[in-house]
Design a protein around this nucleic acid. Structure first.
Lengths: 159, 159, 159, 159
DNA sequence: TTTT
DNA sequence: TTTT
C-alpha cells in the first residue's frame, strides 16, 4: 500500500495503576487504562454534561515501560502517542471478540508525564512527580522487527 | 476531569465505497472502512511482511458527509482526523459487543482527499478525482471564510 | 492544490502572562509565548542536557481567547493545536523580517489546560485551576453542544 | 520542565527538488520546501481564494534522507511529521535573523510518500512512483543522544 | 475490503 | 517554488 499513517494522540488520566506483565521472552509489557472526557452544556436543558471515554493502551517500548513502572499510577495525567490496533480473541465461551488498543511499539510512540492528580492509591513509596519524558528511544541492539507479530494477550479481558 | 485530548490521525485507503445512512431527523451519517498498513522486513528470515489494519470511520459532520458522498469511493486515499469512541451494542444472540470507531463529530475533525488509485470499481458515474479538502467546516450554509486574511500584527516584535 | 494538512501540536508552559489585544473591529486576539523542552544525556560526556524551544501562539478563536483571558497565566501548562503561519513584516529600520507562528483560527485549533505550576506571578486574583477545555468551538454565542447531541445550525458569521 | 510535546504534521507538495547536503562528518541532511494551502470562498465577494504556506523541512534521520534522495522531487506529495525549531543566524550584513523549521531528527519523525503529481521536472532518471514509507526506524546500538548533537551513523539497512 |  |  502507498504510505499510510496510523496515529493516536491522547491526553488523559489513568483509571487505575498500570499493569506490567512479563512475556515468555522476558520482555515486559505495560497495560494502561486511560480516560479522556468531554464536557459540554446541553443547549436545551442547560445542564452540564460529561462523557468519558476509556482507552486501552499497550506499551511494548522498553524505555517507556520503565517509565510506566517507575512513575505512573492511578490518577497520573499523561500524553500518549501510539497507533491503533484491533486484536481478535476468543473468550472462555468460545465467542470471538475484538479489542481495539492504542499500541506503543518498540520503535515508535511517545509517552510524556504531565503531572496530574497525586493519585489516590495507598501506595506511598516510589518515585513520583519527577517529570520524565520518554520518546520512542529504546535503542538496544534490536531493530524494529515490524508490528509485533504474535504476542499472547489473548487471555486479557478487554475493558 | 482536567482537560483531555482524544485525537486520531489516519492516512489510508477506502476498502469499499462509503455507506451513507439517513437518521430519523434527516441528518446523514457516513461510514468508511479505511485501511492503513505497515511493511517491514523480517530480521531473521529476511522476507517482506505487511500488516493491514482496518478502521471504522463514522462521519457526522454535514459538510464532510457531502464530500464523502460526492467524491469518495473504494480505493480513495484520504487523510482523516477524528476522535476515538467505543460503542457498546448487543448482537442478535444477545451478546454484548464493543466497537471502537474514529468519529468525526459535527464540530471537529477533518477529512482531506489525497487522490490515490482511481478505484477499480465498475461504477463510472459521479464526480471523481476532483481534489477537495474539507475541514471541520461548520455545517450549514456558512463556511469559514478562510485564513484570516489581513490583520495588523506588523508592529509585533516576534520573539 | 490537492488536499493538504497543516497542523501543530504542542504541550508546554507559558513563559509569561498572555497578551490580549483588541483589533479595530472589536475582536480580541491572544498572544502566548509557549516553551517546550527536550532533555537528554550526552553520550560522550554523560552530562544532562536540556534545550528549550519557544513558540509564539496567536489565538483568533473567540471562545479560546476567553479561556486564555480568564484562566491562563505565566507557568500554565497547556495543550495547543493550531497551524503554522509565517508572517512577513518590516521593522522600524525598514528591514524585512519573518515570524512563524502557531495560529488558532476562528474555526479550528484547540487549547486545553493541563494544570501545571501555579505560576510564579505575583498576581493573586482571577480564576485559576478550574480545569477548562475548549475546542475549536465555533465562536459567537453558540457553542458546540457536545458529542453527538442535538444541535442547531449556527448562524455565526465567520470572520 | 515537565514533559512537553513539540509536533508538526504536514501534508503537502514539494515546491522544488530536495537539496541534499553532506556535513563534515559525512552525514547527509535533506532540505525540503513544502507547500500547504487553504482554499475558501470569500463570503462577501463570493470569489475563490487560496493561501499557500511554505514550510522548510530539514531531515537528519539517515533512513529518511535516503528516501528523500531516491524518491522525492518537485511536486511530490508527502506526509511529514517532525518538530518545530527556530534557528538564529546572522546574515552577511550582520543582521540577526530567525528561521523556523520542521526538523526530523535522527530518532523521531516520519515521512511518507503519498504520490501526487508526477512532477514536471525534466529529470528523467531515478526511482520514482515506488511508494515508500519510512519511520524513524534506525535502532542499532546507538541511543538517541538528543536534539542534534553528535551521534554515530548507524549501519542499519532500512527495510 | 484498500493500496503497493 | 508545489498542487488543484
Amino acid at each position: 500500500m502507498a504510505g499510510s499513517v496510523n496515529k493516536v494522540i491522547l491526553v488523559g488520566n489513568l483509571g487505575r495503576d498500570p499493569e506490567i506483565r512479563t512475556l515468555n521472552n522476558g520482555e515486559k509489557v505495560a497495560n494502561l487504562s486511560l480516560a479522556t472526557s468531554e464536557q459540554w452544556r446541553d443547549k436545551s436543558t442547560g445542564e452540564r454534561k460529561e462523557k468519558t471515554e476509556w482507552h486501552r493502551v499497550v506499551v511494548f517500548n522498553d524505555n517507556i515501560v520503565k517509565v510506566v513502572e517507575n512513575y505512573l499510577k492511578k490518577g497520573s495525567t499523561i500524553y500518549v502517542e501510539g497507533s491503533l490496533q484491533t486484536r481478535k480473541w476468543t473468550d472462555q465461551q468460545g465467542v470471538e471478540k475484538y479489542s481495539t488498543e492504542i499500541v506503543i511499539q518498540r520503535f515508535n510512540g511517545q509517552l510524556t508525564m504531565l503531572g496530574g492528580r497525586d493519585g489516590g492509591g495507598s501506595s506511598g513509596g516510589g518515585p513520583r512527580d519527577d517529570d520524565y519524558s520518554s520518546g520512542f528511544s529504546t535503542g538496544g541492539a534490536n531493530k524494529p522487527s515490524g508490528p509485533r507479530e504474535s504476542y499472547d494477550l489473548n487471555d486479557d479481558i478487554p475493558f
